[in-house]
Design a binder for these strands. Structure first.
Length: 520
RNA sequence: GGCCCCAUCGUCUAACCCGGUUAGGACACAGGGUUUUCAUCCCUGCAAUGCGGGUUCAAAUCCCGCUGGGGUCACCA
């Protein structure tokens, strides 16, 4: 038995990485790293229908994006390879034979119809359903006859009835079950393939997993797994059942199946709207394929791994009574299972957004540039390859945007720096430009702009101050009017920054266009 | 319905294990200030121990019950 801590995350290839599952994976990873142990990725693809190579891609991509590396698993291999359940058939077969040979598992010839009838009968009588062990009554002659005629069967684990299974969970504490209430689980299908509850036990033992850290919906699977481990003579791993991640503002498990109703969830709503907006500009099909339950959503909208990790780490876990900002390093240093809370926790998009603000602020300018550029290219606002002067230009915009740039895709809101056919916010244009006296001031100040030297922020600012001083007009009037005229938007970088970024020529032209617009 | 889990501000949580805090922090929200916009930043405010019994000088904290919420009951994982 290795002395080192070994944890695992065992996703089944579903084609996307669930944000809640990611939190569970993070806790596994953190516990392994905290103890300088190993984190293993194992692919639970025993269900043939789900076994597709393409369905695994997004999951590995999510781990890589967040920087959660695995010591053993797909691509990297390891001493207990292979790490795909679909390739570990021999292990399950051997374990199943062992159980059958020792009388701890039996072939069940019951048909589906029979079982359904039993179940309904139990329901009618209002008693818990426990499978009827008819096949156990079979004589050797009958069994031989069934085998001879090729009658289908499944292998069931024989639950030792009349005892208690106890678990001392790292998070839930002491939990007990009565084995009399546990039906004999099928461990091998008719075609000989293993079922989850069995495969996971065989794998956890063979992979020398020391701590099974998983979501609490697996708690009810645990007694069967413990019994299976005992029957196999395995050393029992320790268990930690973490609360599941709930939908924002609820206690219900966050589920991909409820995605349509999440669109109406007030907090999720903003995220869907953001997706529609961003993916629309990127020429993608909208948020239909990408939603906030998937990790990929956050990557594509331009969130930072540090922010997502920070938010995930604070769902159901805390360092102390006041620390909110957590880097991965800090979490590794302090993460312990006993500080994981017991109650389910709602995922909070607002809080994630706030963490994102923090980590974006910390990000070096060069990294912000690298993060923004791909959006501009994909939205066709920039052509590839991006020239050095253009990179400098975008960098200057990012500086001007300051903390208004929360997620990378926010750079798309500054599209007016890249195109002349930018959208004009009509409502604000009416309010700030198309107003008594304003066009005249705009025209007059435009003339001064023609001769401001040099065309820099301080020079333009003093020119505007001087103009207002002379005319007695409020600076705010000019500032707002200039912004709407040159960018079409009521918000953005400082106006002087905008003018400089645009350059004298474009600034003058846009003011002229705005003036013309006022006359129509 | 059976089994199991859970219960502190709107949300995430601290304090619970080892009873004694004006029940702390953060997000959100509201108000004020700075930036003559917006965002940022600063200040202030709002706001919680589900209910009922015990035990105790003292209960968010220990015990019991209730209520409520949730998970799970497959030849899915």
């Amino acid at each position: 038995m290795p002395s080192t801590v070994r944890t695992r995350f065992a996703p089944s290839p579903t084609g996307y990485m669930h944000i809640g599952g990611m939190r569970t994976a993070l806790f596994n990873w953190l516990w392994a790293r905290h103890n300088k142990g190993q984190f293993i990725l194992r692919i639970d693809d025993t269900d043939q229908a789900r076994n597709q190579e393409a369905a695994l891609g997004p999951i590995l991509r999510a781990f890589r994006w967040l920087g959660l590396d695995w010591d053993e698993g797909p691509d990297v291999g390891g001493p207990y390879a292979p790490y795909y359940q679909s390739q570990r058939g021999e292990l399950y077969r051997a374990a199943a034979e062992k159980l059958e040979a020792t009388g701890q598992a039996y072939r069940d010839y019951a048909t589906k119809d029979e079982i359904d009838a039993d179940r309904k009968q139990a329901e009618r009588e209002k008693r818990p359903y426990i499978n009827i062990r008819r096949s156990l009554e079979l004589t050797d002659a009958q069994k031989a006859a069934f085998t001879a005629e090729g009658r289908p069967w499944v292998l069931r684990f024989l639950i030792p009835r009349g005892q208690k299974v106890a678990l001392d969970d790292h998070i839930r504490g002491h939990v007990e079950w009565e084995t009399a209430l546990l039906p004999d689980p099928v461990i091998l299908r008719g075609d000989g393939s293993p079922l989850y509850n069995f495969a996971t036990v065989v794998d956890d033992a063979q992979l020398q997993i020391t701590h099974v850290v998983r979501a609490e919906e697996h708690l009810s699977n645990t007694p069967v797994q413990i019994l299976l481990h005992q029957a196999l003579g395995n050393t029992l791993p320790e268990f930690a059942h973490v609360p599941y991640v709930a939908a924002p503002g609820s206690k219900e498990k966050l589920s991909k199946r409820k995605i349509d109703q999440y669109r109406k969830n007030p907090q999720f709503k903003k995220m869907f709207e953001k997706a529609d907006e961003v993916f629309g500009q990127l020429g993608l099909t909208g948020s239909a394929a990408l939603d906030p339950v998937m990790v990929e959503y956050y990557e594509r909208v331009g969130y930072l791994p540090a922010a997502v990790l920070n938010a995930l780490g604070r769902i159901g876990w805390s360092l102390d009574d006041s620390t909110e900002i957590l880097s991965l390093e800090t979490m590794i240093e302090h993460f312990t299972l006993d500080r994981v809370v017991q109650a389910p926790a709602g995922f909070d998009p607002d809080k994630l957004y706030s963490f994102q603000g923090h980590w974006m602020k910390e990000l070096p300018l060069a990294d912000k540039l690298d993060g923004c550029l791909p959006y501009l290219v994909q939205a066709k606002l920039l052509a590839e390859p991006v020239s050095e002067p253009m990179r400098k230009f975008v960098e200057a915009i990012i500086v001007g945007l300051g903390e208004r740039l929360k997620v990378f895709s926010d750079i798309l809101a500054a599209d007016y720096f890249f195109r002349d056919d930018f959208a004009v916010d009509e409502k604000n244009f009416d309010k700030r430009v198309r107003k008594e006296g304003v066009p005249a001031h705009l025209a007059a100040f435009r003339r001064r702009l023609q001769s401001v030297e040099p065309f820099t922020v301080p020079a333009i600012e003093s020119a505007l101050q001087a103009y207002c001083q002379e005319t007695g007009e409020q600076t705010g009037t000019l500032i707002h009017a200039l912004r709407l005229a040159t960018t079409g938007q009521p918000v953005g970088p400082g106006v002087y920054d905008c003018l400089v970024l645009l350059g004298r020529e474009k600034s003058l032209a846009r003011i002229e266009t705005a003036l013309a617009r006022c006359r129509t």
